[in-house]
């Protein structure tokens, strides 16, 4: 395959970051992460990047490639035209650490604010009983690899960092919806959803859904049902609890 020019945003502070061009030969089948690794092994051994699995399973290698939110390890180079320069930049919503590495600590702090699952008693034989069709909704959400690309593109915090205090971001709407739809969970998190999580800030632009490499239908399957729960609960909290226990 041909030669590509790839511009990588490098630096430690956003204001001082610079685009550095690298010219690389690309081999058949290579992905953007391969190219970054090649640059590391040859021209720029200190180029900072996160990665682990190289197979779209760990969610470490998130970046903005040609301005689009993507996993570097799942972005094939044959997607691009060699005549045009490719840009690779770190996620913009999180504070920059260096080069392509950002501080995603916001997400780890948010995770701690969500009370864990609380199940009732198992059946007499010691096993919990749940049916496949009932766990499937939760399973869709548990595919989440925590790449944080959805929250990266969400304008609520991307354009207004000050909202981070009142907004958990789509990743954690997915988590809240998952817990809410768990067939056996008994914890009530509706106040959290309504208040601290700030689901009301979301105006359903669906950018998060488009960004998700796991094809989770974040807006339709997680956020909209959460919004409905919030509305329901303010009319009739008892009905909400009843519905939960019935597993509907």
């Amino acid at each position: 395959m041909p030669e590509f020019t790839i511009a990588v945003q490098r630096g430690e502070a956003e204001a001082e970051s610079q685009w550095t061009d690298y010219i690389v030969d690309v081999e058949e089948g290579q992905v953007v992460l391969d190219v970054i690794h090649r640059i590391q092994a040859t021209e720029a051994p200190d180029l900072a990047v996160r990665w682990n699995c190289k197979a779209g399973k760990c969610g470490s290698c998130s970046a903005e490639i040609n301005g689009k939110p993507r996993l570097m390890c799942m972005t094939r180079m044959n997607l691009f035209d060699p005549a045009e320069k490719i840009t690779v930049a770190p996620m913009k919503t999180w504070p920059l650490i260096r080069d392509l590495v950002t501080d995603v600590g916001f997400n780890y702090e948010t995770a701690e604010k969500i009370p864990a699952v609380k199940l009732g008693e198992p059946s007499e034989d010691g096993d919990f009983r749940m049916h496949q069709e009932d766990v499937e909704r939760g399973q869709e959400f548990r595919k989440c690899i925590e790449c944080f690309l959805c929250s990266d593109v969400c304008h609520v915090i991307r354009d207004h960092p000050e909202n981070k205090e009142n907004f958990f971001g789509p990743r954690f709407f997915v988590r809240l919806a998952e817990l809410d739809m768990h067939p056996l969970d008994q914890e009530d998190r509706i106040d959290l959803v309504k208040n601290d999580a700030g689901v009301g800030y979301c105006n359903i632009t669906k950018c998060c859904t488009e960004a998700c490499p796991e094809d989770i239908h974040i807006t339709d399957n997680a956020i909209i049902p959460l919004k409905e729960r919030v509305i329901d609960s303010s009319y009739d909290p008892i009905r909400w609890i009843g519905r939960k226990i019935a597993g509907k």
Binding site: V117, G126, D127, M130, V135
Partner: peptide
């Protein structure tokens, strides 16, 4: 494994609702 389930893991199910 059962403990993981009680901590929230959602395994695939048999037709009678077990893991």
């Amino acid at each position: 494994v059962r403990e993981l389930e009680s901590w929230g893991a959602l395994f695939d199910r048999t037709s009678d609702g077990k893991i």
